[in-house]
Structure formats: structure tokens, C-alpha cells
């Protein structure tokens, strides 16, 4: 996994609440057996005017000129500013894969859906929860100033605005550690193999019906 330390980047808006994972990456693209290549289909139904198909060359498709990510001023954005309950719905990890593949490294919103939030950390993507009024203010600043950039410093847990204002954010210590180091948590968990085996042995003793039934 790609490590996340400091991201200084252009900010783009996804200005609606309850953005669901179907909207982030529609179902027809979930048929892929790969982990990459979802970027061109991020927000497919909003970004293009036609219905997208897997494997298609998206450069030839009619784009929706009213969708902000298609505005030249947001080209190359790496920080997405969003509203409440971002990433609700399905558990598809294709949603963070698509955001990451498009070039986003960080999403700032007042709240996230649980499974999506968790999936982000597995893919080098940092979701930041900030107070709803604060997010509203960042939206205002971004709209008012073309080329609006933010600096996200995970080590210091700060979002820094162009005026130099520093906004603190919360993140779990373990998730922060894994993201800063780009760690694969399967490897970390397997370091606790003895503890898992010991637990499993007593659990089998207590609940033998949970073992060896499916075979």
C-alpha cells in the first residue's frame, strides 16, 4: 500500500449528501477481477452523458459539462471535499479503488459510512471527518478561489488552508500508523499467530459445533 504522509493538492467538490458507492462506481464495473483501472469510471453516471460499459475507451464518451470534476479548474485534484454520509451503501472496495485510481489521496467530509471509511485506509486513501460548519466554510473558500489547495499532514493531523490556518483532525492511532508506513495489516496480524491459535483452541473447546461442519 502507498504510504500517506503529507498531501498538498488541488481540492475538488462533490457537493451532495449521502453519496453512495453505486454513484462512486456503478455496478457494471464490479465485474472486473482486477484491483486497478477503475479511475476512468469514477462517478460514471454523473461524469458522462451516456451509459458506461466495462472495457470501453472513455476518452471518446460524451462528458457532462455540468459535472464539477469535468471543469478544467478541478483537473488534477487530489483532495475531494464532500458532504454528510459519504460512501454509504454497498461494501464494494471498488469505490476507494476508483477514487485512488483517479488520483484522489484524501476525502474531507462531515461524516462517512462505516464500511467505506474503513476500506479507504486499506488503499492509501485518507478520509478526514471535520465539523459540518467547517466543511461548509471550506466549500465556500474553494468555490471562491480557483486553484484552491489544501495541505493535509497526517503526521501532525492537520489540514492547512492557503491562509495558513491549521485545522486539527482525529484519526485512529493504528490506522494512522499503517497509513504513514504504508503497512500491509495481514502481515502485522500474522505476527500474532500464536495468540490467534491459542484463542482458536479454547473457542473450539467451548463451541465445537463451529468447527469442521463445512467440508
Amino acid at each position: 500500500m502507498k504510504a500517506f504522509t503529507v498531501e498538498n493538492g488541488l481540492v475538488a467538490p462533490m457537493d451532495r449528501a449521502n453519496v453512495d458507492t453505486d454513484l462512486i462506481i456503478p455496478k457494471q464495473f464490479l465485474k472486473s477481477i482486477k484491483r486497478s483501472g477503475f479511475g476512468p469510471n469514477l462517478f460514471d453516471e454523473l461524469r458522462y452523458l451516456d451509459e458506461g460499459q466495462p472495457g470501453q475507451d472513455c476518452s471518446a464518451r460524451p462528458i457532462n459539462p455540468e459535472f464539477p470534476l469535468n471543469f478544467p479548474r478541478y483537473a488534477g485534484a487530489s483532495i475531494l471535499l464532500a458532504r454528510e454520509n459519504f460512501g454509504c451503501g454497498s461494501s464494494r472496495e471498488h469505490a476507494p479503488w476508483a477514487l485512488e485510481d483517479y488520483g484522489f489521496r484524501c476525502i474531507i467530509a462531515p461524516s462517512f459510512a462505516d464500511i467505506f471509511y474503513n476500506n479507504c485506509f486499506k488503499n492509501g486513501l485518507l478520509p478526514i471527518e471535520l465539523d459540518v460548519q467547517l466543511v461548509d466554510r471550506l466549500f465556500g473558500e474553494m468555490y471562491a478561489s480557483e486553484g484552491y489547495q489544501l495541505t493535509v499532514d497526517l503526521q501532525r493531523q492537520r489540514v492547512v488552508t492557503p491562509s495558513g490556518e491549521e485545522i486539527a483532525f482525529e484519526v485512529d492511532a493504528f490506522r494512522r500508523h499503517c497509513l504513514l508506513e504504508g503497512l500491509d495489516d495481514i502481515g502485522l496480524t500474522l505476527q500474532r499467530e500464536d495468540a490467534i491459535r491459542a484463542f482458536e483452541a479454547q473457542w473450539r473447546e467451548r463451541s465445537p459445533w463451529l468447527f469442521d461442519a463445512i467440508r
Binding site: N118, I186, L190
Partner: peptide
């Protein structure tokens, strides 16, 4: 019982555990 992402599917396959809060 709850849903998980694909990275966690792999984590459970490999370790029979999940890291949770």
C-alpha cells in the same frame, strides 16, 4: 454479522480475524 471490503476478505482468509473497533 457485517459486510467487509475486499482487503478484509483477504485478511479473514489469511488470518481468520479482523481488526475492529
Amino acid at each position: 454479522a457485517h459486510g467487509i471490503g475486499t482487503s478484509e476478505v483477504e485478511h479473514v482468509l489469511a488470518t481468520q480475524t479482523l481488526i475492529q473497533k
